[in-house]
Amino acid sequence: MADTIATGQAQPTRPEQIRSERDRSRLARFATRIASPVAIIVLWQVASSTGLLSARTLAAPTEIIAAGEKLVASGELVTGLTVSFLRVLIGFLIALVVGVSLALASGLSKTGEAIIDPPIQMLKAMPFLGLLPLFILWFGIGETPKIGLVAFGAVFPIYLTLHGGIRGIDRKLIEAGQTLGLGTASIIRHIVIPGALPSLLVGIRYGLSVAWLSLVVGEQINASSGIGYIITYARDFLQTDIIVVCLLVYAMMGLLTDGLVRLIEAYALRWRPEAIA
């Protein structure tokens, strides 16, 4: 295209030509973006193969792939993943129920806000991962402190975004609802909740990433199952390949759950101009 303009030739471009050119430029952009990660992995592999990077520090990419295959084949990874996933799921569901209830109570009534909002703002200021020692004292070393830490971490983004969303709802729409004869319950159902949903979904995505982070921290402590257990075990035997595999699994799970929420978002917010366009 650029050439055509430069030489001043007015060549008619057919649609398929444009499309193939667009595909090619997209491919080129993808290639530039992927080039440096690929180079890093190649360098890493070279460093490992030549003995510059010892396996005790970091295993070679090929070893990591092999370790991953072995972990999958033995079923260890799937079992561990299921346990970890359930911890996140249960903890996050608790956070969702608690966060949404608190945000509704505090967003819909002045009294509710006066009671609920100040303590939450205070707790929010605390680095919640630092609560782990207390959680262990209170709940022992079983599942409870791990799920509790996930729930505790995820509840704040959910509460804060939904509360903000409810407060930010256009007064004019609520007035319109009143003139249409809607009662308080109908206004909450038809106007407040759908109006605050975009904010809530942002909070859910943020909350999920916090949930996975809390899980990683929580699972390092005395886990007897889950991905964290596999990591602890591998650490004791200096198996850096397995540790990296587990870290990759955490990352993938985070991406996967985030993608899931994006799908929900795309459907629930299909009325938005950016979704329509």
Binding site: K172, L173, E175, A176, H190, I191, P194, G195, L197, L269, W271, R272
Partner: peptide, 10 residues
Amino acid sequence: FQEPRLLPWK
């Protein structure tokens, strides 16, 4: 009203 005030999600 001066603005339509339609609920955008409906």
